[in-house]
Design a protein around this nucleic acid. Structure first.
Length: 641
RNA sequence: GCUCGCAUAGCUCAGGCGGUAGAGCACUUCAUUGGUAAUGAAGAGGUCCCAGGUUCAACUCCUGGUGUGAGCACCA
């Protein structure tokens, strides 16, 4: 006798051990048909897994998120089988589930073409129709190694040989295809209803650029064709929001060959940039930061002393002039220490918060550049807080509060926090690292928010908290950071006089809220699909006449609004009003003001938003106060959409 | 940096088994003065990314470079 407990709490008794599939069958034929996998006491298992004693059992179908994972994982196997049918020489390596889909890496003599992808997708469809049963089996390490050796699957041999100990390994076989895998998998290849191969690209074996490059095929798989369609629509929507595309359409900025990875800001893009920067300047002034400005070109020796040259010399631009070597600054911190070092500092001066909208250049690898998101010349909302060890936690806490408030103003409510700890290549003693990491952990815990630990991802001089925001597409984008640095101030000779009149080294906190203006504006463009909230919009209002008769009045209103600091322009072209409306609405100008004879007579403007909402006719003053109310909202509510 | 694509008018993109190119929008001119997402007509506009090579002939084929896209690697 054994008793199983189902997720709804109901219990069932069985005479003898039986498989999860049989349990599903005993509950109902429909469930048995829909079943993809099971869960025994919380652990995901195959349907064929035997239940031998009392347990909590759940039947996993495509409706569970775990079910979707199983489908995707199995779909990777399906694809590998199809690839090996078409290209027997292709060797299989690994094929995991990723967000929204899966990939599988193959070692093959030539790259796969888009035509290959089509053929592979078709072969996958054939295997689905064949309805091959999927069998799990267990082998010893040695057996498995000799089997894959015989098959010529060198990468699989390498994977198995890297698995420690003598543990048995599980295998999944469908038709003539067998793969090493932990599972679980769907019971039959006929379970797939919606999948698509999306792209092919190179990827290094084991993620190491010194290894061979494999061919990675990406695919997506869903429970139903409808879900697949929705996913493809989501991708399409993301493409429409691509900041590179919108940057061109809205005439915000451009790039060109002569300055790879460096932005040419156009008047409208620079308008957004200025709005963001002026906001940040005020926020920093209001929160105890002192704004400074430091040189862009600094003698190379400073970067040697700071430790940057040793790690990043290949990524630094340098300039030789009159037989001196300079580096174009890749970051601001060594310069900020120079400012701190001027004049004797007392513990009474701490914490000292220095901020700079510092223009930096880094030689980013060519393949890593991506529109505004990753550039070679950028400006950070950079700041360095010089403080005592005792002040770290409260300074980090203050910073976190400020960051949350700023993100809210920009319309981002969700912040994801991660702590990156000591990397292999680093400076400073282990004690110092212990201390730095602990102080950040304490600060994170003090926020009361969940956070994730990322071992080994810290900067070479100290651990860091990375603050990511979630945009309206659900994408997670790292922007802000705060990093504890017990190393660099000492290397560059910073000190202060403590209460007991001894000399001590200050701790330095590197911090940025937006990260780089370039990247952050890229994020904003995509988040708002180019329709910036009014406070950030480069053109907040445009006034247009219906016929030439109203031209003078339009100029008058324009001057009046401009005098109030509103970013306004007028469109007096000899075009129909519908044409002008369409054009400016597509340019995402928040407010479109139409003036005809009626408005001239009554001294008013007819107001509509870029989203098509008619706000009616109002006086110029009423419009001004409507707009300033909207501006005061920041991005907390989407305005004039 | 690595793998594989791509590069044609200001923009979005066609095109040709090698014989110096086309559309829509934008632009200019003319007509039109029209009340909330495209008024009509005409015109102008190109070193087909750059440098070599093959060829009677290269925008097209080959080689190299640059930029760019997807992914990988990197990210102080």
């Amino acid at each position: 006798m054994l008793e199983v407990t189902l997720p709804d709490g109901s219990k069932r008794q069985y005479d003898a051990a039986l498989s999860v599939a049989q349990i599903a069958e005993s509950i109902g034929a429909g469930l048995a048909k829909a079943a993809l996998a099971g869960r025994i006491n919380g652990e995901l298992v195959d349907l064929s897994t035997m239940v031998e004693r009392d347990a909590e059992i759940a039947i996993i179908t495509e409706r569970d998120s775990d079910g979707l994972e199983v489908i995707r994982h199995s779909c990777a196997h399906l694809m590998a089988q199809a690839v090996q049918r078409l290209f027997p020489a292709a060797q299989v390596t690994i094929g995991p589930v990723i967000e929204d889909g899966f990939f599988y890496d193959f070692a093959f003599e030539r790259p796969f073409t888009p035509e290959d992808l089509e053929a592979i997708e078709k072969a996958m469809g054939d295997i689905v129709k064949e309805g091959l049963e999927v069998h799990r089996s267990v082998m010893s390490r040695d057996e498995a190694v000799s089997m894959f050796k015989a098959m010529g699957e060198e990468y699989k041999v390498e994977i198995i040989e890297s698995i420690p100990g003598d543990e048995d390994l599980s295998f999944y076989k469908q038709g003539d295809f067998i793969d090493l895998c932990r599972g679980p998998h769907v019971p039959n290849t006929n379970k797939f209803k919606a999948f698509k191969l999306t792209s092919v690209a190179g990827a290094y074996w084991r993620g190491d650029s010194s290894n061979a490059m494999l061919q990675r095929i990406y695919g997506t798989a869903w429970a139903t064709p409808k879900d697949l369609k929705q996913y493809l629509q989501r991708i399409e929507e993301a493409e429409k929001r691509d900041h590179r595309k919108l940057g061109k359409q809205l005439n915000l900025f451009h790039f060109q060959e002569e300055a790879p990875g460096m932005v040419f800001w156009h008047p409208k893009g620079w308008g957004v940039y200025q709005a963001v920067q002026q906001y940040m300047r005020k926020v920093q002034n209001d929160n105890g930061y002192l704004e400074i400005n430091t040189p862009q070109l600094v003698d190379y020796s400073l970067w040697e002393r700071s430790g940057h040259a040793a790690k990043f010399s290949d990524e630094m631009f340098s300039v030789e002039s009159e037989s001196r070597m300079y580096a174009i600054k890749p970051m601001n911190c060594p310069c900020h220490i120079q400012v701190f070092n001027q004049g004797l500092k007392s513990y009474r001066d701490l914490p000292m918060r220095l901020a700079e909208f510092g223009s930096c250049h880094r030689y980013e690898p060519s393949g890593s550049m991506h529109g505004l998101m990753r550039v070679r010349a950028f400006v950070q909302d950079d700041g360095h807080i010089f403080c005592t060890e005792d002040q770290i936690q409260s300074e980090v806490a203050k910073f976190m509060d400020l960051l949350f408030a700023v993100y809210k103003d920009f319309g981002f409510d969700e912040v994801i926090l991660r702590l990156s700890t000591r990397p292999e290549k680093r400076v400073g003693s282990d004690e110092i690292w212990d201390q730095s990491e602990q102080s950040l952990k304490d600060a994170l815990n003090a926020t009361g928010l969940p956070w994730e630990l990322v071992p080994g991802e810290g900067a070479f001089y100290g651990p860091k908290i990375e603050c990511s925001l979630k945009d309206c597409m659900g994408r997670i984008l790292q922007c802000g950071t705060i990093q504890v640095d017990f190393n660099t101030p000492g290397r560059l000779g910073a000190s202060y006089v403590a209460e007991d009149s001894s000399r001590k080294e200050p701790v330095m906190l590197h911090r940025a809220i937006l990260g780089s203006f370039e990247r952050f504006i890229g994020v904003l463009i995509e988040h708002y699909a180019g329709a910036m909230p009014t406070w950030l919009a480069p053109e907040q209002a445009i006034i247009m006449n219906i016929t030439d008769k109203q031209a003078d009045y339009v100029r008058e209103v324009e001057a009046k609004l401009a005098a109030k600091g509103i970013r306004v322009s007028s469109d007096l072209r000899n075009e129909k009003v519908g044409f002008k409306i369409r054009e400016h609405a597509m340019q995402k100008v928040p407010y479109l003001l139409v003036v005809g004879d009626k408005e001239v007579d009554s001294g008013s403007v007819a107001v509509r938003t870029r989203g098509g909402e008619d706000l009616g006719v109002m006086t110029v003053d009423d419009f001004c106060s409507h707009l300033s109310d909207d501006v005061a909202l920041f991005g907390r509510t989407q305005s004039a959409s």
